[in-house]
Design a protein around this nucleic acid. Structure first.
Lengths: 347, 347
DNA sequence: TTGGCAATCTGTAACGTTTCAGTATACTAG
DNA sequence: CTAGTATACTGAAACGTTACAGATTGCCAA
């Protein structure tokens, strides 16, 4: 007689990780019953349900992710898709914290899926979908006509974008109101008597580039100030390039007397460029900048800042994706964060 | 006759994701043979092997992670364990990029496992191990006697630490030579004629706190300079606290004329504090700081900086963990990164 | 010819879960 | 007293993979 020892007949008791079989053995029930009892299925007796759940809690049962995933296709994974070259440093760290904060008491794990400049941004998303690696996706650097959003929408994969699209398609997003930021900034500069303003824009092609530019130009005409073109460079460019371009710009006689900057690191470069040109911040020129960590006021107290919280963005994006996965209407999972006041630290 | 349609008898051909069964059907081989052929098992004929691999490539076969994981326990996941409150911003972003760079052409995914100040740092690690969620773990904020390292070592889970331990146990690590940094910094300040130096240390309890302090004090006695105690605050403290303490310190008559700072953000605060006290950087006091992004020179060109690359750390840590998983000796997977020169931007 | 063995290939079971199609029991309606 | 039905539970199959224990074939030595 063949008497190989299989797992079937032996200890359901050892120091191994408990499974449904363990629970079934301990409660004297079938595996099926245990499974259903744990998820509050209706056809399980109230007492049985409680008993199973109690035992499960006692022995610290945790469903095996691979088992669930294999059987159901549910991965319990959210993927954050990031560009490894162009994301802002603070963005990455804060958005991750924001996301993890929200998924902390869910079964979800966060995986980071990177792509580099050379790659098609669609690549990582395609990979995720083709390999079924995530239940939901968060993408950044959103474009008005975003192939990734379109692709995910076509496949029915829940996702949320940091930034809006403009394709007539509805999907969850979180965005900062950069139109409001730019126009507030311009109004603030105008209030200081500045009349000739330059804008350091977000990367061309991203949706919020347009928002920012529109807010800027609309407010310019509202306050009757004029624009000094500064479009050879964006916040994606290197510190050194921005610095150099700023210095060049400030050496011209028709130089701006006000700057609006879309990112903190870029603002350091702008200020350096201004000073390279022998001019003084607060006297010859004023700068309003967005920042995500409250550090710029230490750099030069003459700077004006508007705060944007990427941690909030991360939380909102996670909430949105989870909401969609959970069956909510995509259209109800959109949020826009309004900028606070323009803050000053002088004096 | 029972003629339910099961998956067994039908299409292995549809638009679904290909599995081993698909490949088996296409090649006319058994599932087992296909499985072995794909992993270059020895008992598969050379031609068969090539044929299977060709077909697999053609139809874009990718092993189902859940299947592999369920069967073998291998998750193909590396987890980065992060403190959501105290990590440096640049650290998080750069280390993630460093890690992803290395695992990009492996089957590994990176998951971020967070924990907060209130929690026991062991919690997330315990979770990972108990749920078998990762093949390897990367931990930061390493302590001389690190319970996490001990725990992982006991369970035989491959890991690497950012920073060394001091428990007489051998495990992979990557570290920056903070002893060298601090002592070089002191020597540099001494070279500028500074005689009374203060050190803004890393968080107390972390291994590199000790390295930094030792490098600092050893070099002090080497150059015959003296220490001005500045230990009410560390780089973990808030910007405002560091600034306030620095200002207080600089108002005393026995104030330091040189600072060594272990982090860039903290350096901003130190400089602010110095200036709050009405003193001038480069004249009354000099500061040498570590930084991980090259931004400090824009802040004040009088600053002296030493660069530490967290991206490199991430890559090295990933390489170390993968190496251990791959069977290399833990002791051979340790690396120490030497600081470059103290850089100056004045002039 | 026969036995042995190397070279290739294959079926089955198992990992832990959920779903499908039941089964057993007790209760209700007629 | 029977048939129908609601309640509570259960075994088997399947998800995709790998490991184990064969099975088949051909070749060579004796």
């Amino acid at each position: 007689m063949d008497r190989r020892v299989t797992k079937k007949d032996d200890e359901t008791s050892a120091g191994e990780r408990p499974t449904l079989k363990t629970l079934a053995f301990m409660t004297g029930l079938g595996v099926t019953t245990v499974s259903r009892a744990l998820k509050d299925a209706p056809e399980i007796g109230a007492e049985t349900r409680r008993r199973v759940q109690l035992v499960a809690k006692q022995i610290g049962y945790r469903p095996n992710r691979a088992g669930v995933r294999l059987r159901t296709g549910k991965t319990n994974v959210i993927s954050l898709v990031l560009n490894t070259e162009n994301e802002l440093m603070s963005f990455v760290s804060d958005i991750i914290y924001g996301v993890t904060e929200v998924i902390a008491d869910t079964p979800y794990h966060l995986i980071v899926t990177p792509y580099s400049r050379s790659q098609d941004p669609l690549d990582p998303v395609r990979y995720l979908v083709e390999t079924g690696s995530a239940d939901g996706v968060i993408i950044s650097r959103t474009q008005p006509n975003d192939p990734r959003a379109r692709y995910l929408l076509e496949r029915g994969i829940p996702f949320a974008t940091h930034g809006r699209t403009d394709m007539g398609l509805v999907h969850p997003y979180h965005d900062f109101d950069n139109y409001a930021f730019a126009s507030e900034a311009v109004r603030h500069l105008a209030g200081l008597g500045r009349r000739r303003m330059a804008l350091l824009t977000p990367p061309i092609g991203l949706t919020y580039h347009g928002h920012t530019v529109n807010g800027f130009t609309d407010a310019l005409s509202e306050v009757g100030a004029s624009e000094v073109p500064f479009n050879t460079v964006t916040i994606d460019h290197s510190i050194e390039q921005i610095r150099m371009r700023t210095a060049q710009l400030m050496q011209r006689k028709d130089r701006p007397d006000g700057f609006v900057s879309s990112a903190a690191a870029a603002t350091l470069a702008i200020v350096a460029g201004i000073e390279d040109a022998g001019l003084k911040l607060g006297r010859d020129v004023d700068v309003v900048s967005k920042q995500s960590s409250e550090l710029l006021h230490l750099f030069r107290r003459e700077l004006f800042v508007v705060n944007e919280s990427f941690r909030l963005a991360g939380s909102e994006l996670a909430r949105a994706v989870l909401g969609w996965i959970g069956g909510k209407e995509p259209g109800s999972l959109q949020s826009l964060s309004k900028p606070g006041e323009v803050l000053s630290y002088r004096g």
